[in-house]
Design a protein around this nucleic acid. Structure first.
Length: 552
RNA sequence: GCCCCCGUAGCUCAGUGGAUAGAGCGUUGCCCUCCGAAGGCAUGUGCGCGUGUUCGACUCACGCCGGGGGCACCA
């Protein structure tokens, strides 16, 4: 019996109590099942009696007693008890608890998938860096988290597009061109330009491929260097992300919004809803109508569209492509954007509470040699995605970055990560997977056909086995919660718990027969439990984009 | 001044209103003559402060205190 089935069973009992007029409740709340922290409280617990007691006007323990009377008829329970103020504690017959193994083996890679978000069309935009330099550590966090988020959303039945918005227009990219041009001509790079060493590399590379650029006028050179540099830098970002196993469905260029007429179209939509006005030669959007602290300029007095104009157009464009929910992953330095984005949505006639979701992530800090490393692309003193990967590898980098809720600031101590890589939780989880794989390999070598032999779940009776089975049954709810709360870190935390449960089980319960012993039904039951655990570990790691090695 | 995030164990951090608040690292001590010791078992200390909502608050609301970040016709 899975938690979902238990929930349904309780609901049925409650309904029959209501129709028998033993209790008066109008609306049955969602019946939550949790796994008690203490083993004394059984396999599962529910607080439903406490929830309905008040509206029914009865003592919670009385409600609990009525439910116990009803539920005790069910053969699946070994015990149903009332505890504390009115909790229901369920202890399942071990055969029923163990059935989850069969379910997992049968559903395989689909175990954990639900349809809780079915019918939703979600756009997840993340990273969206300027193509003017390498991706830094902040971007890396979004790469890991954004991708993992997209994966849990898909696993929960949503239709998802991962999108990267390329800021290829405006002053930043112009400065980028000026900087490369200066480097190519051995001139000093302007103070507000880009100073990273990669600028010089780009300059050298471009000059080598197209030496004739240097013969052009300075104005034309700047443009050429900008365009060539842009192409190369974008390609570099794309290839780095590819290696990082973060793949985008759409790379959306800001320039294309302008060339396709999307900007004018967006403006028209906003005008239609009556929130655009002119003042002192500029065109404004009245975002203060919807909670922004000041109105925003769409077209400057000199006729240039602002970056904000692109943003509004991009939003309107996303909506016209059918996305109901638009998730933005932004750094804390962009939090001033939230009200603006929500206001844009409202100005376009949408409901920001429904159509816009902004996840603000705190910045990643990094310590090296005990000192904080400042992340600044402009200063050139940056830790890039590649640096991190070179130090700790893709798996450890992705796992470490997805392990924490995004709203907490993160301090990575590089010295610690590099010198103690074995202490990284990702290895703990991966090790469980490798360990199980080794056991299953050994079983095959011994000629045990555990997949064909009969499985008797009633034989999984030790406390470690019960614990492991309980953890396995939680996975689908963890994935669904990660998706609906937009918190993929829950998957990582869950995997650590699952790995702990497995390692405990492994130490306490011998799986394969010792020399001279025979293969028993217990052997088979445990082997299947191992196989099921491996499947769940694998499914979970996959949601995080982390590999599940069979050997380490 | 206004806005956002965070204050939980010595350190880094979990904890969608529920029972005795948890991991890892660090400390100390056990467990491999047989499935992977990158493991297991044991070992003390803690929710910044104060009101309120609730049967019940680390969790929600308000106010303090402390730390971080942000407030452009920049992108």
């Amino acid at each position: 019996m899975t938690p979902e089935e238990l929930s349904k069973t309780i609901k049925k009992s409650l309904e029959s109590l209501i129709s028998a007029k033993k209790i008066a409740v109008k609306d049955i709340p969602e019946i939550k099942i949790e796994r008690p922290k203490s083993k004394d409280h059984g396999d599962y617990a529910s607080n439903i009696a406490l929830m309905v007691a008040k509206p029914a006007g009865v003592n919670p323990r009385e409600v609990a007693q009525l439910l116990v009377d009803e539920l005790s008829k069910n053969q699946a329970f070994k015990k149903v008890e009332i505890a504390g103020p009115g909790f229901l504690n369920f202890t399942l017959e071990s055969a029923r608890l163990g059935e989850i193994v069969r379910t997992i083996i049968k559903e395989a890679i689909n175990y954990g998938h639900t349809n809780t978000l079915q019918g939703q069309n979600i756009n997840v935009e993340f990273i969206s860096a300027n193509p003017t330099g390498p991706l830094h550590l902040g971007h890396t966090r979004w790469a890991a988290v954004g991708d993992a988020l997209a994966r849990v959303l898909v696993a929960s039945g949503a239709k998802v597009a991962r999108e990267f918005y390329i800021n290829d227009r405006g002053t930043q990219i112009d400065k980028f061109g000026i900087s490369i041009c200066a480097a190519a001509n051995n001139e000093a790079i302007p103070e507000d330009g880009y100073h990273g060493a990669y600028i010089k590399d780009l300059a050298t590379e471009i000059v080598k491929e197209k030496p004739e650029i240097l013969k052009l006028s300075k104005d034309k050179q700047v443009i050429e260097f900008r365009e060539e540099g842009y192409k190369k830098q974008l390609k570099q970002q794309q290839s780095v992300l590819d290696d990082f196993r973060t793949h985008f469905d759409v790379w959306y260029s800001e320039r294309s919004l302008h060339s396709s007429g999307a900007v004018e179209k967006g403006l028209a939509v906003l005008k239609k809803h009556g929130h655009v006005f002119e003042l002192e030669g500029a065109t404004w959007l009245k975002t203060t109508d919807f909670g922004d602290d000041k109105d925003r300029v769409l077209i400057k007095a000199d006729g240039e569209y602002t970056y904000f104009a692109s943003d509004t157009a991009y939003y309107v464009d996303k909506r016209s492509r059918g996305f109901d929910v638009n998730i933005y992953l932004l750094g804390a330095d962009h939090h001033g954007y939230v009200n603006r984005l929500r206001a844009v949505s409202a100005c376009a006639g949408d409901d920001p509470d429904k159509n816009v979701e902004v996840l603000i992530g705190q910045l990643v800090k990094m310590l090296k040699n005990g000192q904080e490393v400042r992340l600044s692309k402009r200063a050139g003193n940056i830790i890039t995605l590649e640096d991190l990967v070179d130090e700790v590898g893709v798996d450890a980098a992705r796992y470490t970055l997805t392990r924490y809720p995004v709203e907490t600031s993160l301090t990575l101590d590089i010295d610690l990560l590099t010198s103690h890589t074995n202490d990284n939780p990702v290895f703990y989880v991966q090790y469980a997977h490798a360990r199980i794989s080794a056991v299953l390999r050994a079983a095959v070598e011994k000629g045990i056909d555990w997949q064909k032999n009969t499985f008797n779940p009633a034989l999984l009776i030790t406390s470690q086995e019960a614990e492991l089975l309980g953890a396995l049954s939680e996975f689908p709810r963890i994935v669904a919660a990660s998706a609906s709360l937009r918190e993929p870190h829950r998957v990582a935390r869950y995997l650590e718990e699952l790995a702990t449960a497995y390692h405990s089980f492994y130490s306490a319960c011998r799986v394969l027969p010792m020399d001279g012993e025979l293969v028993t039904d217990v052997t088979n039951a445990r082997l299947l439990l191992c196989a099921a655990t491996r499947q769940v570990v694998r499914n979970g790691l996959d949601l995080l984009g982390v590999s599940a090695p069979e050997k380490m």
